[in-house]
Amino acid sequence: MHPASSVIIFTTFSGTGYGLMMVLLATMLLGWLPRDPSLVLYGLLLSFALVTIGLLSSTLHLGHPERAWRAISQWRSSWLSREGLMALITYVPMGVLIITAFMNLPDNEVLGTVENAVTSVAATMGEGHMVSQLHDTWVSVMMVLGVICAGLTVFTTAMIYRSLKPVAHWHNGFVVPLYLLMSLMAGSMITVFFMVGFGYDLSYVGVSSMALIFATFGLKLNYWRAMNRMEPTSTMESATGLGHLGKVSVLEQAHTEDNYLMKEMGYQVARKHADKLKFYYRLFAFICFLTITAISIWQFNQWWVMAISALSLIISLLVERWLFFAEAKHAVALYYGKK
C-alpha cells in the first residue's frame, strides 16, 4: 500500500494524542499522580493539539474536504465513520477537563508552571501544586469517560485496517493490540516527560512506561515474524480462477503506464530497505527504553535525555507506521503479477 504521509501523520499524531490522554487521566484515576490542574491543562492541551493536527491532516488528503462532515453518518456499517464519530465525541470530555483545569488553576499558575517546568525539580515539589486538586466526582466521571473515549477512538482507527480483507498484513489479530499499545506507549512516555517537568515522583508510571515500550516492541517483532511466515489469502490462480489449468503469469499488462490501482495499491518496498528500516525501528525503540529507564530508575532526568527520548519516540513511531503501510500487500496487485 502506498504510504501516504497524510495517513501516517494522522495515525501517529492522533494515536499519540489519545495515548497521552488515556495514560495521563488513568494515572490520575489510579492515584499514581496528583490531580494537578496545571498538569491536566497542559497535558490535555498537547493531546488536543496532536489529535487535531492528525484529524486535520486526514481530512486534507480527501478529494472533497468540505464534505468531511458527511463521514460521521454511516456508523452502522463503516469503521471509518465510527472513528470520525468517536473522535468528535472524545473532544467532549477532553474539552470539559481542559476548561475545568483552567478554571481551577491557582492564581498566577499559568506563568508559574511554565517556570517550574523549566527550573529545578525541588522548586516544583513545593506546596503550590497541591493547593487545588480536581477531586469532584464529576471530574472523575469525565476522566473515566476521557479514558474510554480515547481508547475507543484508537480502537476504531485500528479496526479500519483490521477489517480490510484484501490486505492480509492488516486483516489479522495483531493490528488492534498493536495500535492500542503503540498509542499507550507513546502516551506513557510523554506522561513521564510531563511528570519530570512538573517535578513529580515517577513511581509506577516510569515502570509502566518501560513495560509498555517492551510489550510494544515484542508484539511488533512477533507481528513481523508472523507476516514473514504468512500464507497468502489469495493467489494469482485464485484471482483469475485459472489455477486448474496451471501456474498463471502475466503475458501482457492491461495498460502501459501505472494507473491509480498500481500507484495506490501496487506499492512495494524493497526487501533491503524494509530490513534497514526495521533495524532503525529496533534501534530507536531500544533508545526509548534506555532513556525511560535512565529517567525513571536512575533519576537521570536531564533535559537532553528527555530530548533524545522524545526524538527516538517520534522516529520509531514514524518508521513503524511507514512500514505498516509500505509492507502491506493488496490482493489487487495479483492481477498485475505482483505476488
Binding site: 494469482m236 483469475t240 485459472l242 489449468l245 496451471g246 501456474k247 498463471v248 503469469s249 502475466v250 503475458l251 501482457e252 499488462q253 492491461a254 495498460h255 494507473n259 492481477y335 498485475y336
Partner: peptide, 10 residues
Amino acid sequence: RVHGYEVTSE
C-alpha cells in the same frame, strides 16, 4: 481493463 495471462500446465 483486459489483462493478458499465460497459464502453464505443471
